[in-house]
Simulated scan of single mutants.
Amino acid sequence: MAENSRSLTVGEVAQRSGVPVSTIHFYEKKGLIEGWRTEENQRRYERRILRRVAIIRIAQRAGLPLSLIKEHLDRFPAMPITAAQWDVLNRDWRAMLDERITSLIQLRNQLDSCIGCGCLSLEDCPLRNPGDQLASEGPGARLLAAAQSEKAPE
């Protein structure tokens, strides 16, 4: 892409987005954003990259891994992300966050039964051994042990 008056240096992107230069380089290395090199071998980015960086930061703040963020942003490679595209991302990410919130609430509520337990009842512990169907067959990773014994030479 040719350099134009609307392009930003990596330092300008970092300053305007509020993230370190190293993070901009990292995002580019991971394929989350892209830029180009000038004839003088300097990195340049379109100004529209600022919205994409903001979306990445919002998603990270929500606890989404970069691989998942990239997977979702790759559905919308053209910049900038439109309001309709943001609605799609928001819906998808909201569903994931709702699942995570539900899981964390359940975990928090199960912790109440741990007070004073000291993990002395691992057979009954809903956190350490939830719904263990193979406990009656003995301790340890029963499926793994079975798979290894099938592979072992006789």
Rank of each mutant, 00 (worst) to 15 (best):
A146I: 11
S5I: 10
E150Y: 12
N41S: 11
Q42N: 15
I55P: 05
A145H: 10
R128D: 09
E71W: 01
G11D: 02
R57V: 09
S7I: 07
C114Y: 11
N41Q: 13
A146W: 15
I33V: 10
R51G: 14
R6S: 12
A146P: 06
G118A: 05
H72Y: 13
Y45E: 13
M1A: 15
R91V: 08
L107P: 09
N90A: 08
I81S: 05
K70E: 03
I69Q: 00
I56T: 09
T102H: 05
Q60I: 05
P130W: 04
L127D: 09
A78Q: 13
G11A: 04
V13Q: 03
T102E: 10
T9Y: 06
A145D: 13
P80Q: 00
T9V: 03
P20Q: 03
Q110V: 10
Q15H: 06
E28L: 00
G116F: 00
R100A: 09
R100I: 13
N129V: 06
A2D: 12
I56K: 01
P153W: 02
R91Y: 09
L143P: 09
R16E: 12
S5N: 14
Q106N: 14
E46T: 13
N90D: 07
V53W: 00
G131C: 06
A135H: 02
A14W: 02
V13S: 06
